[in-house]
Computed example of a mutant assay.
Amino acid sequence: MTHNLAWGLLVLAGLLDVAWAGAMKLNEGFTRLSWSVISLLLLAALVAALGQAVKVLPVGTAYAVWTGIGAVGTVVLGLVVFQESLGVGRLVCLALVVGGVVGLKLLETT
């Protein structure tokens, strides 16, 4: 697997993480069968993509980038889909997460 493909799979895993979090919200504690099944399938897909990415990328970097994409993406999902609020403090914290993810990519050694 190429380095670029590993990064692509890592980004895919992050986006699947966002979708999984949304499905978890919609499955209402696993009381809605269709959303429960969707959430489990998304979870399996994101773990598979992440598992392939860490074959090539450093696990610490991959994990931090994956969780960063998932965290920021899930906040955006909450804002757009679930009408959650975003205050200045949360915005600053999100900027710190994004900065950390970008820094890890820029300082990557492999």
Rank of each mutant, 00 (worst) to 15 (best):
M1T: 11
H3M: 13
H3A: 04
L5S: 11
L5A: 15
A6C: 11
W7A: 11
W7Q: 01
W7C: 09
L9A: 08
L9W: 11
L10Y: 11
L12I: 14
A13T: 06
A13R: 08
G14F: 10
L16P: 04
L16A: 02
D17Y: 11
W20Q: 12
W20D: 00
A21N: 13
K25C: 03
N27Q: 15
T31E: 01
R32A: 05
S34G: 02
S34D: 10
W35A: 11
W35K: 03
V37N: 01
V37T: 12
V37Q: 02
V37R: 02
L40I: 15
A44V: 13
V47G: 00
V47E: 02
A48I: 12
A49E: 05
A49N: 04
G51Q: 13
A53C: 10
V54F: 02
V54M: 06
K55M: 12
V56K: 06
V56M: 07
L57E: 06
P58C: 07
P58E: 10
V59Q: 05
V59N: 06
G60K: 08
G60Q: 03
A62L: 09
Y63R: 12
Y63K: 11
Y63W: 13
V65R: 12
W66C: 07
W66P: 04
W66F: 15
W66N: 11
T67E: 00
G68V: 08
I69C: 01
I69A: 01
G70Q: 02
G70C: 07
A71M: 14
G73W: 12
G73K: 06
T74I: 07
T74N: 03
V75A: 14
V75N: 04
V75D: 01
V76W: 10
L77H: 01
G78A: 09
F82T: 05
Q83L: 05
Q83H: 15
Q83M: 09
Q83V: 08
E84C: 03
S85Q: 14
S85P: 05
S85K: 13
V88C: 03
V88F: 14
G89D: 04
R90T: 14
R90M: 13
L91H: 07
L91W: 15
L91M: 14
V92L: 14
A95Q: 02
A95V: 11
A95S: 14
A95W: 06
V97D: 00
V97Y: 07
V97K: 09
V97Q: 05
V98T: 01
V98F: 04
V102I: 15
V102N: 06
L104I: 10
K105W: 07
E108P: 08
